[in-house]
Amino acid sequence: MDVTIYGLLVFLIAGAIVALEVRDLLSSVIAIGVVGLGLSILFLLLGAPDIAITQVVVEVIVVTVLIRATARISDEPASRRTDRFAVASGLIVAVVLFFLSAGALVHLPAFGQPAMTVSRWYLEQGPALTGATNVVMAILLDFRAYDTLGEATVILTAIVGALAIVRGAERPVDARATDAGMSLVVRAVTRWLLGLILIFGLAVALFGHLTPGGGFAGGVVLACGFVLATLAFGARSPPASIFGRLSSRVDAAGALAFLLIALLGWCGGHFFQRWLDLGRPFRLESATFIVLQNVAILFKVTGGAFAGFLALAVFRSGPAPEEGERS
């Protein structure tokens, strides 16, 4: 077991070096995708299937965006002149820093023996108190749901920030190719896949409290589905253009819904207090509260991730600046 982990870690390190050192940007991005994939396998091995799922779908979105965005501007700096003095001093600092950090990290509890304090209580009481047998989800959406609000806000912030930054930008030349979509074969396959992806995303989100997954993973899966549809059918196709126009608002509505769920709990006593009863264990309704929250997050993340993708990879977002305005 440990050997596998070590092997994967070394693989990750090698992949990271490749990603940074390969000159071709496309290869770099693909290498980073491979690193992400390896990481998610590692997460799986380390007993973190939720993280593994999320990691893999996030990696898909990230790599897609990176490829779409950087493919057209891949101009590696021509000169590779490096300042020897800077590199040498950087190296010395890095080595010192590494050994200092290593000197501290050896004092951590030994690997494989976590100092579980609150977590033990979560494991003991979580399923009973929240109705979610997936304790990670119990923590994420009930014990520490306030963090999740912050997390949802972070992604919203980043998306809105990206929208704000690319507003009024020149529409890239190859975007017209995106408008057209891809070949018939791809379209046909996509049509088949799309339904599956959507159902899978929904399932991942809905059953997040029982099985690995949750609103985030499901949301990113759904977003991946829309991304696929956009790429295959073209940006002008109905699903892409309709949902594209709505996406940032779906994001806001999802976040708002999540906040409202929290506020409803406040009426009963505490901000974020559960206000729905627990059902029978191991059933969908065992934690209806968490399901609701997962759905809100699902909408939020789907909207957000898709809006981000569209803004960065396809569209010039938002209306053209009005006359006389400063962009």
Partner: peptide, 16 residues
């Protein structure tokens, strides 16, 4: 925290 968050979400919904 809630008030500015609500305001932010509503601003985004009201966009356009």
């Amino acid at each position: 925290v809630i008030v500015p968050l609500l305001a932010a979400f509503l601003c985004l919904l009201a966009k356009g």
